[in-house]
Design a protein around this nucleic acid. Structure first.
Lengths: 212, 212
DNA sequence: CTTACTTAGTGAGCATCTCTTACATAGCGC
DNA sequence: GCGCTATGTAAGAGATGCTCACTAAGTAAG
């Protein structure tokens, strides 16, 4: 039985790349299990190694989960950028599309999303999760800055102007967790909701309702 | 040593009211521990009963946590109402104050907040958490309806108009978790942020940017 | 090729946790 | 008092996180 060895003989030692395999296995498990039901033992079994092996690569369970969260942030970021890119540069539509993709990612991957933002509580311990999550924020601000300029709001602080928008789409995602059916039936309603709110917010800002 | 018996001899059986005591103990533990580090055993120890006793009152660990979450929703609701009541009836200020109190509650009780909205994932199993969380939403909609009428937006659907506002303050809370220092130093900035966004949103709505 | 060193993984074991089961006891209606 | 039920205890099965002594696989130098 060489199936295991075949997979990644390109890699180095015994397994090939156990670290990545464990993260991948956990990302797989999280699709059907709650975060709190994930176990290092399960991940080890899925990777066909003994129960002690993971501890060569991760200090403890939290560190494994932090890597899983980081992977989630990377994927979220990717989807957000892709959605952005489908609309004219600097348009409000691109902002709306990015926001919708964010919300939908959360609603479609409830446990992963819960883990990702739960990991924020342990940021002190794990740079990986912190860095990837901050990269997501930075990307948002960069895009937003450009949009604001093209929309005649260049005089406002992007961080200040953007925070409520980010909070809104994040909040929608968080609130939709556990309601996947609702997402299926009301995806369009939520898109419309985000679009309306974003446009109203821009309109209000043009009237000078945003200080500084 | 009668200290234990003294506490609540008014109650019924051996302990008095173990169920409530376990919930209270867990609410206490959650101030200093992560949700995933809470244990039924700890709660039992805190209540001075054996490790099996809690299972007379809760089917499993999840059910205990669902009750803790419900308690959190009650407290959140209380604070929100109190903040609301400090401002003129039907004013945007009252809405803003309610929103701020919501965000601050989340930021001040990160683990509890995380538990509360994580419990949404298991709503199917536990009515308690579901009911209390929905009561919070219902209260919000009721207040908002009144505000919208007084603000000349009575023609809009409160659910549709309110969702982004709720999502925003919820999102702020969720994003602030793990950043208690930031809350201390920037409480005013966040309040201003919420206030600006809410006013801009209302202004945009008056211009007809919200459909239907 | 052999030897020395490093890295990855094993398997047993400890402490702990969740939850169950058999048993004991407190309080209540009669 | 006498049963009955609600409440709690003690002990234990099964699983987990994590550690540790050990072995095997790879690397590099002579």
């Amino acid at each position: 039985m060489e199936t295991k060895a075949d997979e990644k003989r390109a890699g180095r030692y015994h397994h090939g790349d156990l670290k990545a395999a464990l993260i991948a296995a956990t990302l797989d498990l999280i699709k059907e299990k709650r975060v709190e039901d994930l176990s290092v033992a399960d991940a080890a079994r899925a990777a066909n190694v003994s129960s002690g092996a993971p501890y060569r690569h991760f200090k403890d369970r939290d560190e494994l989960l932090a890597h899983v969260a980081a992977e989630g942030f990377r994927e979220l970021n990717e989807r957000k950028q892709a959605a952005f890119a489908k609309h004219p540069h600097g348009s409000i539509d691109s902002l709306i599309a990015g926001g919708c993709s964010y919300t939908e990612f959360g609603a479609e991957n409830p446990e992963l999303f819960h883990l990702m933002w739960g990991a924020a509580r342990t940021h002190d311990r794990f740079d990986i999760a912190k860095q990837t999550s901050e990269a997501a924020y930075t990307g948002f601000i960069d895009s937003l800055t450009e949009i604001m300029e093209k929309q005649g709001l260049g005089h406002l602080d992007p961080h200040k102007f953007g925070a409520p928008l980010w909070a809104m789409v994040h909040g929608f995602a968080s609130l939709l967790i556990g309601k996947p059916k609702m997402l299926d039936s009301k995806r369009d309603a939520i898109r419309e909701n985000i679009a309306n709110a974003t446009r109203a917010y821009f309109a209000g800002a043009r009237q000078g309702e945003i200080s500084k």
